[in-house]
Design a protein around this nucleic acid. Structure first.
Lengths: 266, 266
DNA sequence: GTATTATAAATCATAATATGAAACGACTAC
DNA sequence: GTAGTCGTTTCATATTATGATTTATAATAC
């Protein structure tokens, strides 16, 4: 379905003269849903920074409101300025702007939630979501990071990676989120082969029990897979009988967005 | 209604050893809805940075995905990592977490959209929104920056500022967004006096024509005004006859959140 | 086709800036 | 009372960021 680029492992060379900025960003990236608040010491330890350095960088981030202190505990949290920046980043994202109408239509046609996701570092990031018309689809998932190996979109994006990078990722253990999550690298490899051939990925109860998703690839003018779109909903509604029809709609929508990006099939 | 703290102009002293980080953040802050994409030169000029320095900092930000390049134009845009961080910042915000149930109830009771907003630098930032039950309330405003002088929430937050800081802000020209926007500093001052006394702010068609909002203050255990909540909707629904009842509900909700923060009336 | 302009990227000597060890002060636990 | 933990400040040091200049690249004009 889509070609796989070979050997592109981008040089992770750090640009000289950017140590302080890189470190500040590392501090920001330490915050997540599992640990939204950090003490200075823990954060310094987690990022491998000297306590003084972490303190100084955090002070700078705090002055700009990218980080805030909990007045009671003194702990650090992400600040309000990031909410504004994130929202601006969302609105400025060209891929999102292009996909939005298609995504909304897809959600209407299927009645299920449609998402647009991209690969960011180790995770799949939801950059847009059109809610399904049915209730119980009110999950506001935009901005969430999801594991690549347990999502339909993640499989699509993994399937398009050059072999070298894929191997690197499969070297890490695959976390079982449900009893249906694929945790065996070899099994995932053959799944990805199927995805590549069919241009379609499915995940039934692999992310969370009772949740099914179907995804397809969005490609740009250079035929690069730049994103994946999906339809997701309760497995009781997205039944094996209904899936083929939904999948076809997802694929059509993905092709529609790809065409807007200058992709030309054939 | 609520006391005004005197003379607190926080020292804008820059912490030594944080120049690079401060500059990098300044670059990020340059991006907004009006100008979501920048060329290197323009951005360097706008931030007052040397072109080389701007380039180097942007490279660091790009490597961490806080900034991305438009492959066609080569221009800089905010990157996807900020979407993830902003979303995490939202979920980690304690004020938002506390207010959410109250906000949802308020929106249900009134049928109009309820928001939670804080003062960030020159703007009011929407950090949460519970949609109204009526259609035409589907504005997803979270993350948006709104002008202080033309919003009900902004007036609430301005009214609580120490005189010195207020004077500083009123020195800047007040932009007219509609023909009803208050642009005269003295008029705004007397409006703020009224807001202070009544503990309530109203804006009818001051932000955009046909949009009305009512806001009240959220105070913490030290009686500091830390946020404002509001109900907003079309002026044809939020009529002068209906406003007092809605205002009372907004005030009750604000007090409810304040109490959760440890505020004790009296 | 060459010249011109604008913009981005690379180079590198310089010193300004970030760094981290050490010390301090404020709490808390025992 | 003592020891331990945590955040903050100080300060000498050299590592790291800086920016003038150069080179590369692309777009536009002539």
């Amino acid at each position: 379905m889509f070609p796989v680029k070979e050997l592109d492992l981008r040089a992770t060379e750090v640009y000289p003269g950017t140590q302080a900025v890189a470190r500040a960003i590392a501090l920001l990236k330490a915050f997540n849903d599992a640990q939204p608040e950090w003490t200075l010491n823990d954060l310094a330890q987690a990022t491998g920074l000297n306590k003084t350095t972490a303190f100084r960088l955090l002070s700078a981030l705090e002055a700009e409101r990218l980080v805030m202190r909990n007045p009671l505990s003194g702990g650090y949290r992400l600040g309000v300025e990031l909410i504004a920046m994130g929202s601006a980043a969302m609105r400025a994202n060209p891929l999102r702007a292009m996909s939005r109408p298609v995504l909304v239509t897809l959600a209407e046609q299927t009645g299920e939630a449609a998402t647009l996701e991209v690969l960011v570092e180790d995770y799949v990031l939801v950059i847009d979501e059109a809610p399904g018309s049915n209730p119980m689809g009110m999950t506001q998932d935009v901005g969430h990071r999801l594991p690549v190996h347990a999502t339909a979109t993640g499989k699509i994006l993994l399937a398009a990676l050059p072999e070298a990078e894929l191997a690197q990722r499969l070297a890490e253990p695959l976390l079982a989120l449900t009893d249906r999550t694929i945790t065996d690298p070899e099994q995932l490899r053959s799944e990805l082969a199927r995805v590549r051939q069919e241009g379609l990925a499915i995940a039934v109860g692999e992310l969370e029990p009772g949740f099914t998703a179907v995804a397809a690839a969005v490609q740009d003018r250079e035929r690069q897979v730049v994103a994946a779109i999906s339809i997701g909903g309760p497995s009781v509604r997205l039944t094996p009988e209904r899936l083929p029809a939904v999948a076809a709609m997802v694929q059509m929508s993905a092709r529609q967005i790809s065409r807007q990006l200058g992709y030309w099939p054939g």
